[in-house]
């Protein structure tokens, strides 16, 4: 209960904090929507008469905006400039602050990116089955958790290297390739598709988007949950090792 109250207060704080950086948030929105838009243009050209492609990519844009994580800009910077020490001295888990900031940025991205999604949908005359959209909600929530865990995991490498942006950039490319943004994974060659369906990246973008777009009626929440458990485990191990290093070397 106390953690929920603290998280709520932190979220409010961070929403206020980021309201002053709307121009930076706009650049993040642009970065987030460019890749799905390219995918949309390419695959619409390949399958000009298929309305499912446009629907899928509009859903992908929305999923990307609602799940995007930037811990390399937020948490890792705290390691680099030493302000993580302030967090360590607070009587609450450090991750509460990280999650609060993550949710605040996502809220702003969704708000600022909504007109882009709307305009794209109207321009391409995309229609959604709203029941499918509702059904995609749990998949979307788990996708948000997975993206956060993946980005946070890679951002933790800031304890060891000052090139965290390269590490997270590499991780984002994997999400782009295997997550369903470069191409809906159903269109990938058989071998690649089978690999993509097992990796966690499909659960971060493609799966909730496919369900919202109605191109897939059901998926495995278990597949997403298993990856959540795995990533939580790895994050915890890396966090402990990182904090041991930080508290051994300091800032």
């Amino acid at each position: 209960m106390r953690t929920a109250v603290l998280l709520g207060f932190r979220l409010r704080q961070e929403v206020l904090e980021w309201s002053g950086a709307w121009w930076f948030l706009l650049t993040l929105v642009v970065q987030a929507v460019v890749a799905p838009l390219i995918g949309l243009f390419v695959w619409s050209a390949v399958y000009p008469g298929d309305p499912a492609i446009a629907r899928y990519y509009v859903a992908i844009i929305l999923v990307t905006l609602m799940t995007e994580s930037f811990e390399q800009h937020t948490f890792s910077e705290r390691i680099y400039n030493g302000t993580l020490s302030h967090e360590l001295l607070r009587p609450q888990p450090v991750v509460v602050g990280v999650i609060g900031m993550n949710l605040a940025i996502r809220a702003w991205l969704t708000l600022l990116g909504a007109p882009i999604v709307l305009l794209t949908g109207i321009a391409l005359q995309v229609g959604f089955d709203w029941w499918a959209v509702v059904r995609s909600t749990p998949y979307l929530v788990l996708a948000a958790v997975l993206v956060f865990l993946w980005t946070f995991l890679l951002s933790l490498t800031a304890f060891w290297t000052d090139r965290v942006h390269a590490v997270v950039g590499f991780g984002s490319q994997l999400v782009f390739l295997f997550g369903g943004t470069a191409a809906p994974i159903g269109l990938l060659p058989d071998g690649l598709r089978r690999v993509a369906e097992v990796l966690p990246f499909y659960g971060m973008n493609g799966l909730p988007a496919e369900i919202a777009a109605g191109t897939r009626s059901g998926g495995s929440l278990l597949y997403q949950l298993v990856w959540v458990v795995v990533l939580v485990g790895v994050v915890m191990v890396l966090w402990r090792a990182g904090i041991r290093r930080y508290t051994a070397v300091g800032s």
């Binding site: 704080q13 206020l16 030493g82 302030h86």
Partner: peptide, 14 residues
Amino acid sequence: SQPVGGSQELTVMD
């Protein structure tokens, strides 16, 4: 050197 941590956009009262 770092007297105040946390969100810098907030008011002192917040």
